[in-house]
Every structure is written in C-alpha cells, then in structure tokens.
C-alpha cells in the first residue's frame, strides 16, 4: 500500500537569540533526520517529552514550516518543492487539530465562518444556504448543536471549542489529520470525550491520523504504530503493542516505566530518565 503521507529525513533548526552582538549564531536542532510513513486509515502515535520536537514535526508535516532539508511526500508528491499557490491548493487534504482550543479559534470570528474557512478555500462558489448546511452537518457529527453557528468562541467551554476545531479540520474531508496534543489542555473529564470522538471520526471518515502526545496511555489506546522522539530524533518506532511490550531503546523503557499506574504499589523499580 502506498502511504498517504511520507516524510524523508526532515530536518529543522531554529536560530537561537544571540546573547551579545558579537556572539556566534547558535542554532537549536528541533527535528533531525525524521522519516515516517502514514498509511491510509492508520494512526501513527508520536510520543516524547516537551521539547522533543513533536510540535515542530507537526508543523513540518502540515507544511506550515519549511524544513531545512528533507522531503515531505503527500500522495507521492513532494510538498516542499511546490510553489505557494500549488501548496495552498493541496492543503485541504491534510488538516490539523491544535493543542490549545483557546488559541486555535479566532475570537473575532463567528463559529460559522471559523468552521467554514477551509470550505471557503476549496469551494468558494458555494451558496450561503449550502455553506451553512455543510457547517451545520459537520457540527452535528462532532456532537454540537448547529444552533451555535452565530456565536463567538468565548461563549464555549474548552471541550466545545475543541469540537469546533475538529469540525473545522474535517469539513473538507481530509485524508489525514494531524492532532497535536488535542486533549492535553482540557479537563480530565473532557479528555476522554474528545479522544473517543477522534477515534469514532477516524473510523467514520476513514482518516489517517498522526497523533502527537506526551501521554503514553493515550497513544497506546489510539495508535496502530508509534514513534518515540527524544531531542528531535526518533529513537524507536514500531507497532504500538510491540513497543509497549518489548521496548528496544532505554528511553522508551524509561518512559513506559514512568507511566502512572492505577492500583499499584509505589513503583520502586521505575527507571530515572
């Protein structure tokens, strides 16, 4: 099977601010030689602690940032080689759900316009009624009452906002969804709702998903395959269950050992990172 999205040797570094004028420019290597494949309908989990380059990788996969080197193949086509206009025309196939539902919705835009935004780009000729109907339909699928169309983001809770963000991501029927810690900014009671919703929608829409999290339990629950990142490098990857039962890298073992467990005595055997 050919992958929906494939990354080959992606590298990305950022210039660090100089301490003094004459200091040599130093760079932070955020993502280093990362390669990955996502097959149709498959969920790839990416775990790692904060600062491990997960979010940078997400932005690279979304072609929101240009990699320093490497290729990003979307259905066999290298997105990094396209012009801005060509890239825009292909964006609707890859959508993203962000971590912070308070920052990912424009506070000055009505829910109707927010959710319809990707649709406006792909089908600009849509009539007002059709546009409204499409938005109402997708809102219903993510579990929101379509009456909310005329409201503004500040009138919603974090969980509802994340549902709105998911609706926006799915309205153009993407083939792949990149979810960057979609539940970690939410209350624990809401987290499960959002994660279950994503799992359901994945089946309903036949989505492939890149699921980024620092929470191994969630990744284990949602993903078919997983990758472990540390300092911008992939240290381990494989079938999710295989990684959990037989981790091959020390860092993976340490992460798994550090997972909180219910109904267990204090874990004296936990390895230190």
């Amino acid at each position: 099977m050919s992958p929906v999205l494939e990354a080959r040797d992606l590298c990305k570094s950022y210039a660090l601010p100089r301490g003094t004028l004459l200091e040599r420019q130093r760079r932070l290597q955020a993502v280093k030689n990362v390669s990955l494949r996502v097959e149709a309908g498959e969920t790839l989990g990416i775990v790692g602690e904060s600062g491990s380059g997960k979010s940078t990788l997400a932005r690279l996969l979304m072609a929101l940032e240009k990699p320093d080197s490497g290729q990003l193949l979307w259905q066999g086509e290298d997105l990094t080689a396209l012009t801005a206009a060509e890239l825009r025309a292909r964006r609707h196939g890859i959508q993203m759900v962000f971590q912070d539902p308070y920052g990912s919705l424009d506070p000055r835009m009505r829910i109707l316009d927010t959710v319809a935004e990707p649709l406006d780009m792909t089908e600009p000729g849509l009539s007002r009624e059709d546009r409204r109907a499409r938005v109402a339909d997708i809102l219903e699928r993510v579990g929101l009452n379509p009456e909310v169309l005329a409201r503004y983001p500040h009138q919603f809770s974090g969980g509802q906002r994340q549902r709105i963000a998911i609706a926006r991501a799915l309205i153009t029927r993407p083939r792949i969804l990149v979810a960057d810690e979609p539940a970690s900014a939410l209350d624990v009671s809401i987290q499960a709702q959002i994660l279950n919703l994503l799992a359901d929608l994945k089946l309903e829409f036949g989505l492939a998903m890149v699921f980024i999290s620092h929470d191994l339990g969630i990744v284990r629950y949602l993903s078919d395959r997983m990758m472990v990142m540390q300092h911008g490098v992939v240290v381990e990857e494989g079938e999710t269950e295989r990684v959990f039962t037989a981790p091959s890298h020390d860092y993976t073992r340490a992460l798994i050992a550090a997972m909180p467990r219910l109904f267990e005595e204090e874990d004296h055997g936990a390895q230190r990172l």
């Binding site: 929101l64 964006r91 609707h92 890859i94 993203m96 971590q99 990912s104 919705l105």
Partner: peptide, 14 residues
C-alpha cells in the same frame, strides 16, 4: 503567533 493563524494557513488562505 496564535494557532488560529496556523489553522487559516492550513485551510489554504493566502
């Protein structure tokens, strides 16, 4: 710097 700008770019806005 906000995510809704990233979302707009991902949606294909110029």
């Amino acid at each position: 710097a906000r995510d809704y700008i990233r979302a707009a770019r991902a949606a294909g806005r110029t």
